[in-house]
């Protein structure tokens, strides 16, 4: 999958950098990082920064003594790693089989129409981002979407505007 790479200026704080260094220290012994923990470190970095900008990838590469291209390679391989920041509210619509069969594509279309963005994009004000995901394991409630941590199930297109409105205020 091709990923959007952010062009926004990097706004990391020293506290964030400190947290990241602590994570790397946690997987190191005798000054050497356990390289098999690269994904773990990147996952932690993403939860600290919200995404993995170039600057953070460099910190990880140097901190763990792995080539930068390896960090970038892993970041682009797995769909969970984001190279662009997500919105304040990330709307993630399940396009897993159970949800798709029950019409989740229409729900996704409706959301994109409401917010005026394409899947994978973020609204200009940075409030909402929209993405398609594959199965969050709540197939019994299909079609399903998540807005940050909140799960909405048994959706129909008509529910979309009302649900989004709750987050717009």
């Amino acid at each position: 999958m091709k990923k959007k790479i952010s062009t926004l200026p990097f706004k990391g704080t020293p506290e964030q950098a400190e947290q990241l260094m602590a994570v790397i220290a946690g997987v190191s012994s005798g000054g050497h990082a356990d390289k098999s923990m690269l994904m773990h470190v990147m996952q932690q970095a993403q939860s600290i920064y919200g995404y993995l900008p170039y600057e953070v990838q460099v910190m990880i590469a140097q901190g763990m003594d792995v080539p930068l291209e390896k960090v970038y390679g892993v970041a682009t391989f797995y769909s969970q790693f984001a190279l662009a920041p997500k919105g304040e509210y990330n709307v993630s619509v399940c396009l897993g089989t159970a949800c798709y069969v029950k019409g989740s594509q229409n729900v996704l279309d409706k959301i994109c129409e409401n917010l005026g963005v394409e899947p994978g994009e973020c609204t200009e004000d940075g409030r909402f981002s929209v993405e398609a995901c594959r199965c969050i394991g709540a197939c019994g409630l299909a079609p399903v979407m998540m807005i940050n941590e909140d799960v909405y199930g048994k959706l129909v297109e008509g529910d979309v505007d009302g649900i989004l409105q709750k987050y717009k205020i």
Partner: peptide
């Protein structure tokens, strides 16, 4: 981290090792 192919046994092991 969200890669279907990692369910395949050899890919899964490469992933545990910290690789693509």
């Amino acid at each position: 981290a969200g890669a279907f192919v990692c369910g395949e046994e050899t890919a899964l092991m490469t992933s545990i090792e910290g690789n693509r």
